[in-house]
Amino acid sequence: MWSLRRSPEGTRRQHRLQAALQLRLRGEYGPEWWEVAPAYVALVAAVGLPLALLGWLWNRVGWWAALLAAAALAYAVRAAVLHRRAVLARKRRQAVRFTLDQVDAADDRAFRRMIGRLLVRDGWTHVRGVRVNDAGVVHLVGVGCDGRQLGVAFERGIEQAGHGSGGRAALRPVVQAAKLPAGAAAGPQALFLVVSSGSFARERVVWAARTGVQLVDRAMLQRWAAGEDLTVLLDLDVDDVRPDAS
């Protein structure tokens, strides 16, 4: 019988060991069996134990008991999956953050996209852009959790995109509040915003107070983009009644 001995350097086994060592050093080598064994055991237990329980009920109690247990198990699994999805979706929404530097560096389209993501983060649904005139002005519209309709218009600062100074906004001719799409009912709970990357002139503040339009200036935008909810930012109440903005 041949005696066992180590493989000399330069053999295929030595090359394999060296290659495995290099992979481990680069973090590209897969896990060892003892690292994945607990996951396999948990998977087998998660599948095998319910099946064993159903089989026991079928043999000892009856088919109806096994059927009821299977229905209860399916309901519990579905509830757990939906809860997990809701938690992940909430975490993704809460991760939406912007800085004023990002806002200033964005063009008009990117600015609208940022505001749209903030709205979705805060729970507004059906958020989309709507062209409101022949000049190509686009407003955002959406729906709140309570059914409140939303319309958002935009104004930028004096400097061009990418060079925002944070000074007073160069106001565009937004004569009315942001418009809702054709066929949308602007009910008593409709909310209209004008979001600016700068500040608002006194005449614009007076106009907004008379028409029931909410203004979001640079300071409020910073708080909103940093994570504060829009309803908290504007101190909104679901029972607010907005007068006609025409």
Results as ranks from 00 to 15, higher is better:
Val130Trp: 14
Gly123Ala: 06
Gln189Pro: 05
Ala184Met: 10
Ala177Glu: 08
Gly212Ala: 03
Val195Gly: 09
Pro181Ala: 02
Ala110Gly: 09
Glu203Ile: 08
Trp124Met: 05
Pro38Glu: 01
Val77Trp: 08
Arg172Lys: 11
Pro188Val: 06
Tyr75Gln: 12
Asp239Leu: 12
Met220Leu: 09
Ala19Thr: 11
Glu9Tyr: 15
Gly27Asn: 02
Leu193Gln: 06
Leu233Pro: 04
Arg109Asp: 08
Ala208Cys: 00
Gln14Met: 14
Leu236Arg: 08
Arg112Gly: 04
Gln22Glu: 14
Arg93Asp: 08
His139Cys: 07
Gly212Glu: 05
Asp134Trp: 09
Val152Gly: 09
Ala170Arg: 10
Val103Thr: 08
Leu221Val: 01
Pro50Arg: 02
Arg60Ser: 15
Ala110Arg: 15
Val216Met: 09
Gly123Met: 03
Gly129Asp: 06
Arg6Ala: 12
Leu17Tyr: 14
Val195Glu: 04
Phe111Glu: 04
Trp2Pro: 12
Ala105Cys: 04
Trp64Ser: 13
Arg24Leu: 09
Ile158Pro: 12
Trp224Cys: 01
Gly116Arg: 00
Phe200Trp: 14
Gly30Val: 05
Ala178Tyr: 02
Arg128Ile: 02
Ala95Lys: 03
Leu88Ser: 15
Asp239Glu: 07
Gln149Val: 09
Arg26Ser: 07
Arg113Cys: 13
Val127Arg: 04
Asp244Val: 07
Ala19Ser: 08
Leu21Met: 10
Gly151His: 01
Leu191His: 07
Gly157Gln: 11
Val195Trp: 03
Phe200Leu: 03
Ala74Met: 11
Arg131Ala: 06
Pro38Asp: 05
Gln176Asn: 10
Ala46Ser: 14
Glu228Arg: 10
Gly142Asp: 01
Leu150Lys: 00
Arg84Met: 07
Arg6Pro: 06
Thr11Ile: 02
Ala79Met: 07
Asp107Tyr: 02
Arg16Leu: 08
Leu25Arg: 11
Thr211Arg: 15
Tyr40Leu: 11
Ala72Asp: 04
Arg85Gln: 15
Leu21Glu: 09
Gly144Val: 00
Ala201Met: 09
Asp101Ile: 06
Leu51Ser: 12
Val205Ile: 15
Asp108Glu: 12
Leu21Asp: 10
Leu140Glu: 01
Gly27Arg: 00
Leu150Ser: 05
Arg210Glu: 11
Trp34Ile: 06
Gly136Pro: 03
Ala219Lys: 07
Arg168Glu: 11
Glu32Cys: 10
Gln176Glu: 14
Val44Pro: 02
Gln94Pro: 04
Arg24Trp: 06
Lys91Gln: 11
Arg202Val: 14
Pro31Thr: 00
Gln222Cys: 11
Val36Asn: 02
Arg6Ser: 13
Met114Lys: 04
Arg148Ser: 14
Trp58Val: 06
Asp239Tyr: 15
Asp229Trp: 14
Ser246Phe: 13
Gly123Asn: 04
Leu221Ile: 00
Tyr40Arg: 10
Arg223Asp: 09
Val138Gly: 03
Leu230Pro: 06
Asp108Gly: 04
Leu51Gln: 08
Leu43His: 12
Gly142Arg: 01
Ala219Val: 07
Gly144Leu: 01
Thr11Asn: 12
Leu57Thr: 00
Ala72Val: 05
Arg117Asp: 13
Arg242Pro: 11
Asp104Phe: 13
Gly183Arg: 03
Arg202Gly: 15
